[in-house]
Simulated assay, not measured.
Amino acid sequence: MLTTGLILILASLGLAQGLFLSLYLFTLKTGNRNAHFFLGLFLLGLTIRVGKSVLNYYVPLENWQNNIGISGILFASPSLWFYGKALFDKNSSLSGKDYLHYIPFILFLFLIPFVPRKGSFESLWNYGIVVFHLLSYLILSWSNLRKNKNIVSKSIMAWYRNILIGASLIWLHYVGNLFDFEMYYIRGPIFYSLLIYAFSYLFLNRHKFNLQKYSSSNLDKESSAKLFQRVKELFNSEEIYLDDNLTLNTVSEKLNVKSREISQAINENVQQNFYDFVNQYRIEKAQFLLRDCHYKKAKIATIAYDSGFGNVTSFNLAFKKKTGVTPSAFRKG
């Protein structure tokens, strides 16, 4: 069992991280700014809601303070849906009628002094309606994800799906709280904290999760797949990877396509950068040569150069990274 002090530390750190990420997203000037704004709103709403649970667990709050915390869900829910719409269409913007989705939050805010906090009506109002409100937007968001699965890149789809899974799990925790399962009351904030840490790692680790790198590109998912197929055909037919001076610009000139689009096609279809993609072909060539009887007595350096590597050190490092063994061990094995 977690001690009271440890629960407070974990939950508080998660809340601080959530608040930091919200502010970071609000001030981020690059990439899809609409998407950043709505994601920031979603995280801020969750942070307010979870913060209320943490405070109320340790310090009894006034009715109006509890209600302010609960109101966070009412603007987090539509923000989650709008985030998906902005993520899938970077040119999207809110119309006048879209702001109607925030009316429940505004009404709740004005009615805070009058919203009861005792008895069965409290459970219906503060949890039943609010939990149902979040469920409604989760359904809309999952539907939006399904509708766009063949349009946007795999990385964006996976990212939004993971956010929806996390939001859905938080919703389940509050369903438990609705039915008066006390253990869910504080486990929700703990789970939220873990979710925020995972989110922070993925979002800030831009080399692995780089949603907005190609935000200005007009290359859609289908065109990206077709271009990637052309790149593979070029590599297989002309074996251009055997040139140790091969660059992205070389491929760009051969295919008469912008180098940025080639990089995007490779990144979106196999989640590799250009040089990792090239080295994959070179290592496969090296594996073939290491098994070739005509190269049985050839030095490792010869294998490296004939596979397209410019030096033996780079070859050894790349080969071991890919296969888990050195070229010499591979040959013996």
Rank of each mutant, 00 (worst) to 15 (best):
L6C: 10
I7F: 10
L8M: 11
L13Q: 03
L13G: 08
L15V: 15
L28I: 04
L28W: 09
R33N: 13
N34C: 09
F37K: 05
L41N: 00
I48W: 01
V50C: 00
K52Y: 14
S53W: 09
V59T: 07
V59Y: 08
Q65D: 09
N66P: 05
I68W: 02
G69S: 05
G69K: 01
I73T: 01
L74M: 15
F82A: 07
Y83S: 08
G84F: 11
K85R: 13
A86L: 07
L87Y: 00
K90I: 15
S92M: 04
S92L: 11
S93H: 15
G96D: 02
I106S: 04
L109V: 01
I112Y: 03
P113W: 14
F114N: 12
V115W: 06
V115D: 02
K118F: 13
G119W: 14
S123T: 13
S123N: 08
L124W: 14
I129R: 08
S136T: 10
L138Y: 00
S141Y: 13
W142V: 15
S143P: 12
R146K: 02
K147E: 14
S155P: 15
M157G: 05
I163N: 04
A167T: 02
L169M: 08
L172R: 00
H173P: 12
N177W: 04
I186D: 11
R187K: 06
G188K: 01
P189T: 08
I190L: 10
Y192G: 03
Y197D: 00
A198W: 07
F199L: 12
Y201M: 08
N205V: 02
Q212S: 07
N218C: 11
E222I: 12
S224D: 00
K226F: 04
K232D: 13
F235E: 00
I240E: 05
Y241W: 09
L242F: 14
D244R: 14
T247G: 01
L248S: 00
V251H: 11
V251N: 00
V251M: 01
E253K: 06
K254R: 09
K254N: 12
K258S: 07
S259L: 09
S259R: 13
S259V: 07
S263I: 02
A265Y: 03
N267V: 02
E268S: 14
E268D: 04
D276C: 13
V278W: 01
Q280Y: 12
E284F: 05
K285V: 13
F288C: 13
L289Q: 06
L290H: 02
Y295E: 01
K296I: 15
Y305F: 10
Y305D: 00
Y305G: 03
S307E: 04
F319D: 03
A329I: 13
A329E: 00
R331Q: 07
